Simulated scan of single mutants.
Amino acid sequence: MSDWAFDFTDRKVVITGGSRGLGFEMACAFSTLGAHVAIASRKLEACQDAAERITAQTGGKVSPYALQVADWDQCTEFAETVWEELGGVDVLVNNAGSSPLYDSISGISEALYDKVIGLNLKGPFRLSALLGEKMTGNGGGAIVNISSIASLHPKPNVVPYAAAKAGLNATTMALAHAYGPDVRVNTVVPGTFLTDVSKHWDQEAFQERAQEFAAKRGGQPEEIVGAVLYLSSSMASYTTGAMLTVDGGAPN
């Protein structure tokens, strides 16, 4: 009989953008369930602080790393380092992402465009390619890409971000075929979540817009966790190349 419980005891889980927001909640959940979690983000001190807070809460082992996800060479070095230091990787969660504001579409600079594509698409591809290949020769594993509802319903204020996340969706399907059956590759497609970034929004305007959602509100960071745990676990053993939308029933 299959074991349907979420149990990641002694599993090695790598989460980019794991020092805050959705990534931090994912790291806490995996650590609570017994995983050795590696969190990586641009600022090492932020990862060290997050690792200490998670360990204090869960008692688990959390390893902090500095990583510029948009940097191809840093991703290459990180993949080698984290594989060696953790003794392999069972789950990779490509969570790091950003959508900078801009005044007009024609005013988007090449630097901004390249930065958004690098962080949201190029880096996740490079990490997935390297760690996915290693997983295939080491008993398999799971890759979970964190996309965005903008990839399915793009708006003028997020053109580079939406394009990058749409590319991430395509990458998910391609790598599911490339590394299957040993490595499952899936995407979570979040809608609006109330992370630290949301504190800068016009709250009254957002509450009005949220009335169009089936849930009538934005998501709390911890509400992304179930989808990520499912896709990372044996419960999703026949799920690969899929996109799981978690958006509170937001309209198109």
Rank of each mutant, 00 (worst) to 15 (best):
G107M: 10
G87Q: 12
N169A: 02
N157M: 08
L131E: 00
E85T: 15
A174E: 02
K216G: 12
E84C: 09
F193T: 04
A150H: 07
T187Y: 00
L121E: 07
E84N: 15
E77G: 13
T81Y: 06
H200S: 11
E85S: 15
L119R: 09
G141D: 10
S98V: 07
N157H: 13
S128R: 03
T195S: 06
P154C: 13
V159M: 06
Q207T: 12
E77H: 15
T76D: 15
A166K: 00
E84K: 11
S106L: 10
C75L: 04
G218S: 05
N145R: 01
S109Y: 06
G137P: 03
I143V: 07
D182W: 08
S198G: 12
Y179P: 01
A205P: 01
K165V: 09
D114K: 15
G107K: 06
Q220P: 01
G140I: 07
S148H: 05
S151W: 00
C75Q: 07
S198W: 15
G97A: 12
K199V: 10
Q203V: 13
F78V: 05
P156A: 03
T192Q: 14
Q203Y: 09
P156G: 09
M135G: 00
D182G: 14
G132M: 04
A111C: 13
G140V: 12
R126D: 04
G123K: 09
F206Y: 14
G218D: 00
A210L: 11
L86K: 02
I146G: 00
R209M: 12
A205R: 08
A111Q: 13
H153E: 10
T195N: 12
T187R: 01
S128W: 14
G107L: 10
T172C: 02
A170P: 05
Y179R: 14
A205G: 01
A79V: 05
E133Q: 12
A150D: 15
V158T: 06
N138V: 13
A96S: 14
K216T: 11
G137I: 07
W201N: 07
V183H: 03
H153N: 06
L175A: 11
A215T: 15
T187A: 01
A210T: 10
V197E: 06
V158L: 07
S99G: 08
G141E: 11
V159C: 11
F78R: 03
G180E: 01
A170W: 08
N94A: 06
N169Y: 09
I105P: 04
P156L: 08
I108K: 09
